[in-house]
């Protein structure tokens, strides 16, 4: 099954819903070029005031970690609770810390 080279490539879409928030992955779509991808993303993913800013990335440019490596990649962080502020006991009465 050979793909028609004239098929519009796949883009992943990230939308920032409000100033100051992260761009969040919302889905994907097809477009011939980046400009069209942004416009399609606007028409497809922001029809209900969801959008403030849009990023599009060619899906082929994304490398993903393997979920089954999850243990190796992410579990080692589990016992480093000293990275979290709640790890520390502050003396009673101390303010603004």
């Amino acid at each position: 099954m050979s793909e028609n080279p004239n098929n519009w490539p796949l883009w992943e879409v990230f939308i920032q819903s409000k100033r100051g928030l992260d761009h969040k992955h919302v889905g994907s779509l097809h477009a011939a070029d980046a400009q069209m991808a942004i416009e399609n993303a606007r028409d497809v993913y922001t029809r209900r005031q969801e959008g403030n800013s849009i990023w599009v990335v060619p899906a082929s440019a994304i490398s993903a970690s393997n979920h089954d490596d999850g243990g190796m990649l992410f579990d080692p962080a589990d016992d480093k609770t000293y990275r979290h502020p709640t790890f520390y006991q502050m003396p009673e009465g101390a303010k603004y810390i």
Binding site: L10, G27, S28, H30, V44, R47
Partner: peptide, 24 residues
Amino acid sequence: VQDEAGHGLYLYSAVETLGTSREK
């Protein structure tokens, strides 16, 4: 009716994550 087009699109995208292209 436009929303339904969007729904089709979101779902085709989900199919693509399983390795089957929109064209197919």
